[in-house]
């Protein structure tokens, strides 16, 4: 692969765009292109399948062995709430290969000192998510306990097909949350998608352990997600 192509490939990945390289094994020539650009003739189906499934593969086309390597955006976690759990989750998610964004309008919580090196925005989710949009490669984690802050992003995440939607709170808190979201027009099957109480049940007893439980829950959801349910336009 040429240096310019490698740079373009990396730049697309940093922009969270799906990108694909095709390498002809006989002479090692390669091309890259973004999802939506015209595919080379005869490869339309293979390219569509690669983008949709996220699976790279060797294919035969016009007697040539070609390797299609597809790079989908890495799963991302958007955390609503700059709380103690979020501090631990920021560290863990980087190790596990997730992008992470934390949003909290409460400036006392959302301080750079508490979140060194973390992508943190001290503003309301309804304003931030207009610019930093959710997508099906995103997990939404709401941990403020405050309906004024959590409810909007929870509904937005369910609406756009985030692969994981979790909300912190007791069963009682969650029951009243479900009532509010239902009154706000969220369908029953969407309400059931919310992981609450949040995280895998490992008996987590402190913020760091809860962060581990949440991350494990997110990984489980990501690895078992149904590709065919991802909206065509969103892949």
């Amino acid at each position: 692969m040429r240096t310019g192509d490698l740079s373009a490939l990396n730049a697309a990945r940093l922009r969270r765009e799906a990108v694909l390289s095709i390498t002809r094994l006989s002479d090692d020539s390669s091309v890259i292109f973004l999802e939506g650009q015209a595919s080379p003739p005869g490869l339309e189906d293979s390219v569509r399948l690669a983008f949709r499934s996220g699976k790279s593969a060797l294919v035969e086309a016009t007697g040539e062995a070609l390797f299609l390597n597809v790079y989908l955006p890495p799963p991302r976690i958007v955390v609503i709430g700059a709380v103690h759990i979020s501090q631990a989750l920021a560290v863990l998610s980087a190790i596990a290969g997730f992008d992470l964004l934390i949003i909290d309008p409460r400036t006392a919580f959302a301080t750079p000192e508490r979140f060194v090196g973390v992508d943190l925005v001290a503003d309301w989710p309804e304003d931030v998510l207009k610019i930093r949009q959710l997508d099906p490669y995103t997990a939404l984690v709401a941990v403020t306990h405050d309906p004024k802050i959590d409810d909007f992003p929870l509904k937005a995440a369910l609406d756009c097909g985030c692969f994981y939607v979790g909300a912190l709170g007791s069963r009682k808190t969650h029951a009243s949350r479900v009532e509010r979201l239902r009154a706000n027009g969220v369908a029953e099957d969407a309400l059931e998608r919310i992981s609450a109480p949040i995280g895998l049940d490992i008996g987590a007893a402190n913020p760091a352990e809860i962060a581990v439980a949440i991350l494990a829950d997110i990984i489980g959801a990501f690895r078992s997600r149904d590709i065919s349910s991802v909206p065509e336009t969103a892949v």
């Binding site: 990945r13 890495p74 560290v91 980087a94 997730f98 992008d99 090196g117 992508d119």
Partner: peptide, 14 residues
């Protein structure tokens, strides 16, 4: 920023 790309092989290669 802490990002998953710090040790990404293609980023390192570039």
């Amino acid at each position: 920023l802490q990002t998953p790309y710090e040790n990404d092989p293609l980023m390192v290669a570039e």
